[in-house]
Amino acid sequence: MRFACLATALTVWILSLGAATAFEIEGERHYPAPEGAVTLRIISTADINVFEPIILEFQRQNPGVGIDYVIASSTELMRAIYEEQEPFDLAISSAMDLQTKLANDGFALAYSSFATEALPDWAKWRNQIFAFTQEPAVLVISEADFAGMEPPKTREELISLLRENPDRFAGRIGTYDVRISGAGYLFATQDSRNSDSYWRLTEVMGRLHARLYGGSGDMIRDVASGRLALAYNVVGSYAMSRLPDYPGIRIILFEDYVNVMLRTVLVPVNAPHPSEAGLMVDSLATLDSRPALTERTSLPPVKASGLQENSAARPIRLGPGLLVFLDRLKKQSFLQNWTSSMEQFVR
């Protein structure tokens, strides 16, 4: 019954073009509460189908809270909170750097509860940003294209493989367009910090006319359809959730290092309902204790022990370091370097 009601509440971003807001949204869905007057407005970068089980579970426990779920890209989310100070109750984003900037520049409320105290230290900052998922950046390959070949285990092996087989991979490599994707930019900048091989890899990918994408979902779809042989820096959770639908793809975690992105939530400083927002933060922070729910969302929850299982995993550290790549000059020079490496043969 509820689904029927929700379906009618779904609106797309085209409808919102006429609205007064200047930031662009990609979708919006209302989950009205049967009783109670409080409606939490959530702005999020996560797809609705990923996040919906969490919302329904939350409403089962808090029947008095309605939810207004707005989907936007990480840059639009930043604009909504930072520049336009839209009264959202929660901001959920995978762009850790932008979330950090929001907190650093005083746009987040501090919140503390038993649930947030239980989070590991690397999963929160200033009691303002709380991570609730840990999502590795992975390489997704098409099994058909690697038939009879050993898939690369490190970035060096990937570089050699691409250099040695230019014909096979030309035009069939996918990666984020870091100029439009927040997550792509985050992965790319962390790559550049972690290893010198990143720029060589970018050069090689550019020489092979890599295709550039705005989101992980499209890359996975194209690998599965055979358009791409491999996609680099795909958000692991998306790939995992699609694995049953696309039998021909395979996920590879590199052995040299794996960037682990943390999806984070914060309560904006002008949130109309901060106490209800805190309930949602608690709900997200305790995701790990509800396996049935995480299975439905396919979001890998933050685990205190989760990072010891894989010694190559490097969680991206929350903190002022993330502000560096948001510096105007730094970003400008990074994007220049990236563009010149990636588009060296653009005619």
């Binding site: 910090r193 550290r317 903190g319 002022p320 370091g321 502000l323 560096v324 790549f325 510096d327 000059l329 730094k330 020079s333």
Partner: peptide
């Protein structure tokens, strides 16, 4: 070229 370590 803002060094990463400067803020981290």
């Amino acid at each position: 070229e803002l060094p990463y370590s400067a803020l981290s």
